[in-house]
Amino acid sequence: MLTYPLAQFPLRRLTASYRAGRLIATGISADGHILIVEETTDELEKEPILSIHQLKDEWRKTTIVPKEEIDFSLIDCFSDGRLLLVASRCDDDVDGTWLPNAFIYDPQGNLLDSFCLDDGIQNIQIDEQGWIWVSYFDEGVYADAVTSSNGAFGLVAFNDKGEVQYKNRQYPIDDCYALNVCSSQEVWFFYYSDYRFVRLEQTEDLVCEAPAIAYSQFARHEDYLLASNTDVIQLLKRTGTVYEVIREVSFLTEQGDSLTGDLTMRNDLIVLSTGKQLYFGTLGRRLSSLLPNE
């Protein structure tokens, strides 16, 4: 792999992100709230529960829901405060139908609805109008192709009843590696095997060539993307319809200490989760310090 000049990106510690349990999922809502789900124990009932925290700066709101017999791995919320928990995988019932893997709760933790979004989910993000955008990895794409299920399309949008509103019919998605729903009018995704970044448009989509790297998360600002996989974090610049790497990036605390952890990105917001805390920053605010000197 080619090497590029290294730029350092300081992230701020999120004050209200302290945790007491096992981290289950991290997400970012359409309005920029950071969401985390952790498994804890009800001290009175001595039963496992899920604590869903909505965070912004020093503000924190927690919703408690029972721990279902399902391995949730994805979280988001609707603009009216309803919460969505999703499992990446789903099982079939004795009659062959899929069991639910998406569960909607009200802000008090009461279960409102559940339905199936198909198996092999890579990511989910809800836009401001309430559509649930779902991307699928290869097992979901090819397993569902046999039954012509939704996952076979690689990228699908559902409403809050689990009804399909959009299916990708244009791009040959073998694996939808990354998803960034900035708004209902600006939906980005990155897919294999073509290694393309796509911005969906009502008139004409923007389709851009990219390095042959399995980016799993990316933030965007103007003509720049900050993209990451398990091995590298890179700053990419768009020229025409081609994204090229111009920097490699490492994260630091504001005190200058190295930061590593699990990344979640949406719009231009970057969230890094360590064992005990969350750190965050925005690409737009730091972009000028990351760019090469002209």
Rank of each mutant, 00 (worst) to 15 (best):
residue 217 Q to W: 05
residue 232 V to H: 08
residue 216 S to G: 08
residue 269 L to A: 03
residue 201 E to R: 09
residue 196 R to N: 13
residue 239 T to L: 11
residue 209 E to H: 12
residue 250 S to N: 00
residue 233 I to L: 11
residue 219 A to M: 04
residue 224 Y to W: 10
residue 264 T to H: 06
residue 224 Y to I: 12
residue 238 R to N: 02
residue 271 V to C: 03
residue 245 V to A: 07
residue 249 V to Q: 00
residue 260 T to I: 06
residue 222 E to S: 08
residue 206 L to Q: 14
residue 268 D to T: 03
residue 273 S to W: 05
residue 208 C to L: 08
residue 264 T to L: 01
residue 245 V to K: 07
residue 209 E to K: 11
residue 251 F to H: 00
residue 240 G to W: 05
residue 198 V to N: 05
residue 230 T to S: 14
residue 232 V to N: 10
residue 249 V to G: 04
residue 233 I to K: 13
residue 254 E to T: 06
residue 268 D to Y: 03
residue 210 A to H: 00
residue 212 A to W: 07
residue 245 V to F: 05
residue 208 C to R: 00
residue 252 L to N: 14
residue 213 I to L: 11
residue 256 G to V: 10
residue 226 L to C: 15
residue 201 E to Y: 03
residue 248 E to C: 06
residue 270 I to S: 14
residue 273 S to K: 09
residue 220 R to Y: 05
residue 205 D to H: 01
residue 212 A to D: 15
residue 239 T to F: 12
residue 225 L to R: 14
residue 270 I to Y: 07
residue 242 V to G: 01
residue 265 M to E: 08
residue 235 L to A: 13
residue 207 V to R: 12
residue 228 S to D: 09
residue 231 D to A: 05
residue 211 P to M: 10
residue 241 T to F: 05
residue 210 A to F: 03
residue 245 V to W: 01
residue 252 L to I: 07
residue 239 T to A: 10
residue 222 E to K: 13
residue 194 D to R: 14
residue 230 T to F: 14
residue 217 Q to N: 15
residue 244 E to V: 02
residue 240 G to E: 06
residue 251 F to R: 00
residue 261 G to A: 07
residue 248 E to G: 04
residue 201 E to L: 07
residue 260 T to A: 12
residue 266 R to D: 04
residue 254 E to V: 02
residue 200 L to Q: 00
residue 209 E to G: 10
residue 249 V to K: 02
residue 212 A to V: 07
residue 224 Y to R: 07
residue 253 T to W: 08
residue 209 E to F: 09
residue 221 H to T: 07
residue 198 V to C: 09
residue 240 G to C: 02
residue 235 L to F: 09
